[in-house]
Design a protein around this nucleic acid. Sequence first.
DNA 1: GTAACTATACCAACTAGTCTGTTATGTAAA
DNA 2: TTTACATAACAGACTAGTTGGTATAGTTAC
Lengths: 203, 203
Amino acid sequence: MPRSGTATRQNILDAAQAIILQRGFAGASIDRIITGAGITKGAFFHHFPNKAALAEAVISRFIDAEAALFKDICIRAERLSDDPVQQALNIIGLYADALDNHPEVVEGCLYASVALQRSEYPDEVSKIAADSIDQTTAQLRPYFDAAIRAAAPRKKINADDLADMFISVGEGAIISAAYRKDPSIPGRQFRTLKAQLELLFGR
Amino acid sequence: MPRSGTATRQNILDAAQAIILQRGFAGASIDRIITGAGITKGAFFHHFPNKAALAEAVISRFIDAEAALFKDICIRAERLSDDPVQQALNIIGLYADALDNHPEVVEGCLYASVALQRSEYPDEVSKIAADSIDQTTAQLRPYFDAAIRAAAPRKKINADDLADMFISVGEGAIISAAYRKDPSIPGRQFRTLKAQLELLFGR
DNA sequence: GTAACTATACCAACTAGTCTGTTATGTAAA
DNA sequence: TTTACATAACAGACTAGTTGGTATAGTTAC
């Protein structure tokens, strides 16, 4: 058995993600990444056939982590209450809590990075990022739909716009956090959103 | 007097902004920009001493336009009503209208571009972008403050978080719009926000 | 034994920026 | 009215360094 390369691979992905969020994908040169990871060019191309494959690996890992977090939050929200309104509110509250525990959000978000450099990332990467956003809103929509049906909201509102609002607040708050260098902003923004939806659903 | 170069300069800025929003700042090479603008390298470096100066010009122009739009909206909102709550709501509504008339928002936002490529842009550019964001929230905060004092909101909320929410929804909605290729999203998101604040202030 | 590396040399394409020239347009003296 | 001239607006070849990627020969840990 040869030695495992998984640590080195993670090392590369970590360095790549950090540099991509600081300098963009084009600015994240392979030389900078291998310097950041403390390895050589030979090691890099042993793990990734080219830069496009690296991009796909970085984004995929990020997306998988986000999807896992989101699914976990949905499960916990359902466990906390049977009431559809409370479930929807809990998803937002739990997401706020999760962001509080991840101060590295001030570094930025790879979803936003892909959106703002569509033509620089490989097409495949743009596609899987877009699919992941679609999947997240599709998962979220039923919760808001159920809440709207259960509570007769005080303002005419639809689940699509609420699901979009969830994504928008998340992405936008991370940009605000980056400007202010304040990692508490995303959590606070989701709690502000939660308070507004409590009113909307009469809580 | 020699011929005027202002049209060429605008041409360069337009091409640069479009390419920056598609590929990031590092991906927006001078060769790509001059090809996009249909000019030569000599013309480019006649107008800008280096790439950093171009970045500053592009961002400054964007910031000035945003600031002018925002100021205009504030003035119109104040004219529409003397009621502080209505003024705050009108700002959001007028901003939604303005976004409806600018379908190019799906291309992205330079504020977000700078935030997500801090280390690639010249320091001066990051600084003026951050200052501009600070100034916008500082202008917005008094409106929300006045509304809170006038209306005793139904949820405990502060003007800082509301001003941040305005920025977050704006930035986030543009990212959502880019993913969905739907320029109607930002306007709809601001209207959703407005509906929530109407409830908050008892309207 | 074999995969996981290090180290280094190399390449073609691209990068920001420089350089030397050329062209358009207005001013003013002859 | 022509002609000379000043000056900004360009054109395009050129350079030194960087880019992503390849090649190759040896070393290390399981």
